[in-house]
Amino acid sequence: MLSRGPGRWAIAIPMALLALATLYPLLFTLNVSQKTRREYVLDRLGLTDRLSLDNFVAAWQTSGLNTYVLNSTIVTVGAVVALLVLGSMAGFAFSQLRFRGSRVLLLLILSALLIPFQVIMVPFFRILGGIGLLDTHLGLILAYTSQFLPFTIFLMTSYYSRIPGEIVEAARVDGSSTLGIYLRLMLPLGRPALLSVGILNALFCWNDVLIALLTMQSQDNRTLMVGVTALRGQYSDNIPLFASGVVIAALPVLLLYLFFQKQITDGVTAGATKG
């Protein structure tokens, strides 16, 4: 379709430049992370001429990122599990089972997609404080679950609605209960979507700063991304340290992306295609 020869390259070159622009900020950050604070103040943009892990060690140890990684992991895993369980159950019910009020409920949940977190921020923390979950892992897991559940249900419902109703019907004729159908049919069938939706949600939770910052008041409970942001406080001019923290925080996510690239990219597409 695309003519061979010069035409291809006329498009390929700008696209290669764009690819470079996509990678540049991270390379830039990597460069800054190699400098000492003094080198950065004296020459902010120059290329570094040495490789050093000093800032990484400092960020990891003295700034406590090592404990924050644990918090981020606990909270991310907890929230993703909750999201997948709740999301797949609801997605199954909304797509394959008809019951009174299902449309209204689905609409109610989907309308929550349109509520920016700031809109409910003030009362939200009042509620969380009221049930004693402020500054706890469970509280943050709950916060993430409520934040990303509408999106998860949206994707799971559209994924499950591609499964022909006849399959569910046949299972029922064979004597399966609704719960049995969910456990033995829908969960295995939903695996591709669950994997990719799970990874996407893990990304969202891992990368969040705002909700974690306000939920976790004490230092011991802080998440990695909040800890990294704190390295770049108003009262810190140690930008290389911050850059090192950025690299540390992005590393697990990048690895996750490299390993699960196909699943991630497949997953966002649930519901986008004609199936």
């Binding site: 394959q96 089972l97 008809r98 009174r100 609409l107 609605s161 022909p164 109703g165 019907e169 609704t178």
Partner: peptide, 24 residues
Amino acid sequence: MSAAHPSGKARRPLSPRLVALASF
């Protein structure tokens, strides 16, 4: 209550009335 969905295509479009109901 839990009648299985006969086919994925059978859903009726959501009526504006229901939309209003949900946000009410």
